[in-house]
C-alpha cells in the first residue's frame, strides 16, 4: 500500500509540469483526464527517449542515466491509471482532443492485457538497462513492441 502511494506520488510529481504544457481541451468535460493521460505518456516518452537515444547510438551509454530512466518507466507502469479513463472519454465522443479509441472500453480485457505486457517489458528493461549497452538494446525491442501492440488496437493512428 505504502509502495503504491509512493509511486502514485512520484508519477504525479513527474506528470504535473508536463501536463501543464499540453494544449488546453477546455471544450471537453474530461480536460483533466486527458491532460493526465497525455502527461503520463509524455513522461514515458521522455524516459524512453533516454534509453532509445543510447540504444540508437545518438547519445553515449551511461549506466546510471539508463538505470534512472528505466526505473522511472517501471515505476510509471505500476501506477494505477484507471481513474484517468472514464467511460465516454474516447475519440468518438470527444473528437480531436484525444486519440483514445472506443476499443479501450469495448475490450477492457484486451486493454488490460496490453497494459500488463508494458509492465512486464518495463520491469525487464529496469533489470537490463544498467547492465551495459547490449543488455539495454536487447530489452528495447520488447519495450517498443509493447507500446506498439497497445497503440495498434487502442489509439487512433492519425499523423
Amino acid at each position: 500500500m505504502r509502495l503504491i502511494s509512493r509511486t502514485m506520488l512520484l508519477a504525479a510529481a513527474l506528470t504535473l509540469p508536463l501536463a501543464a504544457t499540453v494544449q488546453g481541451q477546455s471544450d471537453t468535460p474530461y480536460e483533466r483526464h486527458l491532460n493526465a493521460r497525455q502527461g503520463y505518456m509524455d513522461v514515458l516518452a521522455f524516459n524512453i527517449g533516454t534509453l532509445g537515444g543510447m540504444a540508437r547510438g545518438n547519445i553515449d551509454y551511461d549506466a546510471e542515466a539508463a538505470q534512472t530512466a528505466a526505473d522511472n518507466l517501471a515505476a510509471m507502469s505500476g501506477v494505477n491509471t484507471r481513474p484517468f479513463w472514464p467511460e465516454g472519454s474516447d475519440n468518438a465522443a470527444l473528437g480531436d482532443a484525444t486519440r483514445a479509441l472506443p476499443a479501450i472500453w469495448e475490450d477492457p480485457e484486451g486493454f488490460g492485457e496490453a497494459w500488463m505486457a508494458y509492465r512486464t517489458a518495463a520491469s525487464d528493461m529496469a533489470e537490463a538497462a544498467g547492465g551495459g549497452l547490449d543488455a539495454l538494446r536487447g530489452a528495447m525491442g520488447p519495450l517498443g513492441s509493447s507500446c506498439g501492440s497497445c497503440h495498434e488496437d487502442f489509439r487512433q493512428s492519425d499523423d
Binding site: 521522455f46 524512453i48 532509445g52 528495447m140 506498439g148 495498434e152 489509439r155
Partner: peptide
C-alpha cells in the same frame, strides 16, 4: 527497427505490423 519516432512516440495502427 525499434518502432519509435524521433520524439520517442511509438508506432501505432497498421505500422505496428509493418515494423514487426
Amino acid at each position: 527497427n525499434d518502432g519509435f519516432t524521433p520524439e520517442f512516440d511509438s508506432a501505432g495502427g497498421s505500422m505496428v505490423e509493418v515494423i514487426a
